[in-house]
Design a protein around this nucleic acid. Sequence first.
RNA 1: GCGCCUGUAGCUCAGUUGGAUAGAGCGUUGGCCUCCGAAGCCAAAGGCCAGAGGUUCGAAUCCUCUCAGGCGCACCA
Length: 561
Amino acid sequence: MTTDSQRVTEQLAAGLRAALAEAGLPALGEHAWEVPREGAHGDYASNAAMVLAKAARRPPRQVAELIVRHFPRLPAVGTLEIAGPGFVNVTLAPDWCRGALPGIVAAGATYGGGEAGRDQHVRLEFVSANPTGPLVIVNARAAAVGDALARLLKSQGYAVTTEFYVNDAGNQFQALAKSFEARVRQALGEDAPLPENGYPGDYLVDLARDYVKEGRPAALDLPEGQRVEHLGAYAVARITEGQRRVLHDYGVDFDLWSSERRAVRDRGLPERVLGELTARGLTYEQDGALWFRASEFGDEKDRVLRKSDGELTYFAVDVAYHHYTKFGGATRVINLLGPDHHGYVTRMRAAMRALGHPGEAFDVLIIQLVTLLRDGQPVRMSKRRGEFVLMEELLEEVGRDAARFTFLTRRHDSPLEFDLALATRQSADNPVYYVQYAHARIMSLFRQAASQGAVPAPEWDRLDWSPSDPPRLTLPEELSLIKRLLQFPDLVAGAAQALEPHRIAYWLGELAGAFHPYYKVNRVIGDDVGLTRARLLLCAAVGQVIGNGLALLGVGAPESM
RNA sequence: GCGCCUGUAGCUCAGUUGGAUAGAGCGUUGGCCUCCGAAGCCAAAGGCCAGAGGUUCGAAUCCUCUCAGGCGCACCA
């Protein structure tokens, strides 16, 4: 039943559907109700009349009148008005709003949840930095967005598996192993130069020192193939471990750390997918290479799967992994990639379509670059030059909550400028603290109320309210706060559907911005017991929603600060 | 040359899938702590939404072109 939903717009949508049917008007698609910018236009507005005007062969305002006349009487709806060119504006019934307050507190952490993702399993891959060095700032951005997305999707009923894919094979692995070997030899006093395409960073020097200390250089006498495997494996294990630790400190723990080597190559999946594509007639041989007919599936040209030297391309390996493993256990696959991979997206999408996976089931989000500034001067980030700012340093300088929140107040697909010096200097003015402060204030308020005996416990979910309390919330600010809280389930559902966690961060800022002035002007704990309980109930709901919102972002909701 | 992303207040960015009078934070200016947390509140200033056309009841949002910045265009990963 839609009336069980926490979403106000679902109730209104049901009402609208009934009204349209009743009035003999055509049905309407989604997105019928939105929260207007202007308060004077009601709490929710629909442009249904304008959209339907043509199909109904009537002027918009006339259609609007039909809608209003046939709209069912819902307890949530106070007034229906026709405005402007044909908007239908709804103002919620104040008593209904007030009465919803206990439900928000009672729902607790589940308030804002939904079930759009019921029976769906999302495989979500993000960060997946190469195991050739420590994580840097962009990785922190991807981690913040990916983790928040996972939380968002889970809140809407999706089963979510998060994954960090380790590229522990191929050319980069070779380069890493050889660079590491040179560093180990240097640590032993040999004159060993770094290879041509090697990795110059200091981290390999440190790793080499550890390696020598552990007394393992015997491996240097192995034949080249084994030597590279052994040294590479050691370096990958150590570097990956470091990445995992930093991510953990950041509050991001993956369900899966998968190895390209073990999960794909060793299982022969690439050969299998080549066979499958060939069996479907989607490949051909040319110039000694095996090609996939990507251009028949929307790509601009065909792509090589197996090079003329017999080696598989990265693409072939990736297609196999997506097809068998990712889609093997999931109904939907989402990858977060850097902008340097956007040329890769169409070809992967083409391969997924060729293998029968519907376009909606496969999403790639491009996480745009972070331009790092220090006092307005760009900081170059290049692993090649061994000159970059580490994610670790970011966390030390800016802090976990502030870093995550900052990344999540931007759209993921828009480039971002991050001034380290500025972020550090102004950390006390960071928007994240504004939101957290509201939460801490409310917690403090309940501690205060408990110490004065106004409520039995400092926890708001044990607030002993009475049915006669909510009607005491008669101030316009109070009603408007409640209405804002009632938007939360719609907000979360929309953010999850659009894969846009930044909406949550912005909205939380607005909620805090409505709460602080209210708190400033109106005293919550007073002599009037009923009024005190009513206002505590409101504050409890605000605190609950802020806490839920911050939890979706993976940002802490402190009891005090 | 082709493709993708971006261009909104001095700076950093939002703008509810095309809605009604374009917003926030920072910065600037001026006020507010005998009272539940001043990491807060109140107020002011700040805009040709890069530019030009088009689509329609209606455009920051969609289309075309121009300009500017970033990134891609491998039998690399």
